[in-house]
Write a protein that binds this DNA or RNA. Structure first.
Lengths: 230, 230
DNA sequence: ACGGTCTTCAACAGATATGTTGACGAGGTC
DNA sequence: GACCTCGTCAACATATCTGTTGAAGACCGT
């Protein structure tokens, strides 16, 4: 039932694969530099056109090279997405968990999570946005393993926020009429949706300022003091 | 410089195209029914796997038919996306504009926009989510015209929300320290992000209730009354 | 200039997707 | 039962993308 015609394995099987592996383990400075340039170009294009629509030819053009040459530096599109996304997402998740486990009241933590995430979006632009944009729920067929792994990381991230919200509801520092899950998703929505419109080069408002605004609105409410009666 | 090898035009050029056009203008009841079933299947799959990853073969399997048969009912993937998305998005945009132009204070309108949108998400599931998920900023190459059109509609939708926010800031019914654009995007983020987690079959909370929750939180603030001092 | 390693690229092979054809059969109509 | 329209589908044609090869070129120290 299972026929595997092309199985690249994870080892350096092909000629070019062997040469690539050799070069990578060599750790030559300009080799790594060029590889990083390719990854950066890929990140830009993934953000601009989406992963599915970006071809290796596009990336080659962007870095001013030949498509075939890229294989000397990277194993394929999958590996590129990995390189663009994995580390930075892991780091971000860890940061969120650190905030959750740290000191402070739930509202303070929530503010820190929101502002911190926006800061990270800016600092690592466009990596984290590539991640948000490429809906991991749409499993990339083969890469089931990686997708599952990333989904787990994502759950941890969402979990950290949800935990803080729940903590606040239980401690009474947040209005308790709202379901924690819904609220956590709403907060993530506000922040994550910035991937659709925020661009450090174009958007006049600063990322951190956006975070502050959202934190203010969420925590203090949007209605003018006089109208709170509503 | 421009070589157009395959130009399907918009007319019924091919044999199957002619037959399709004939059948469609015939307006036979069961023909339209079958076509609707195909569109519905496409919507489900687009939502589940994303547009790019969904193939005509997938859709054929879903409706229990042959891939080639689908061409008797639809011209191609593009036309399917159109059928899934265009009408319902247009209607939704018009509804948002109607709220903006209607009576009431800005906070009231905002609440209606939020709850109304969530209601529409539920009622037209999964069409509007397909639209949100398929980032129109990632131009589908050829379909430039359609993409631009949809982007214009999108701008109108966003514009309606932004207008209401601005109205509230100017009238003093909303806290005026926040940039209208950022705020409008934040609200849209909260609501639109539900496409990542809300599923009428699975999510225990009702769509309308989610809308109400978000409206409450945004308008009245999240911090418990005692802590508002912050 | 020589020998070695590092890097590029034209050309190929294969997979997967789309859209088209043309013929065939099911069903109703007279 | 001959006829005709409606709908289906095996087979084909074409396009696009990925990954690989093998040889040639660039660059460096000696």
């Amino acid at each position: 039932m299972a026929d595997e015609p092309q199985q690249p394995e994870d080892a350096a099987d092909s000629g070019i694969g062997r040469r690539r592996a050799a070069a990578r383990s060599g750790g030559r400075a300009d080799y790594e530099e060029r590889r990083a340039a390719i990854v950066a170009a890929a990140a830009t294009l993934f953000k601009r056109q989406g992963y599915a629509r970006t071809t290796f030819a596009d990336i080659a053009r962007e870095v001013g090279s030949d498509r075939a040459s890229l294989y000397y530096y990277v194993g394929g599109k999958d590996e590129l997405l990995d390189a663009v996304v994995t580390d930075v997402v892991r780091a971000n998740t860890a940061a969120a968990e650190a905030v959750r486990d740290g000191d402070g009241t739930a509202p303070e933590k929530l503010r820190e999570l929101i502002v911190g995430t926006m800061r990270a979006f800016h600092e690592h632009y466009p990596m984290l946005y590539v991640y948000l944009q490429e809906n991991l729920a749409h499993a990339p067929d083969d890469r089931q393993a990686w997708a599952q792994d990333m989904r787990a990381v994502n759950r941890r991230w969402a979990g950290a926020i949800e935990d803080v919200v729940r903590e606040g509801l239980e401690a009474g520092t947040l209005r308790s009429a709202v379901p924690a899950r819904v609220l956590a998703n709403g907060i993530m929505g506000m922040v994550n949706w910035t991937n659709r419109w925020y661009d450090p080069e174009r958007t006049s408002v600063d990322a951190e300022e956006i975070g502050t605004t959202y934190a203010d609105v969420l925590l203090s409410g949007l209605a003018a003091p006089a109208a709170v009666a509503s």
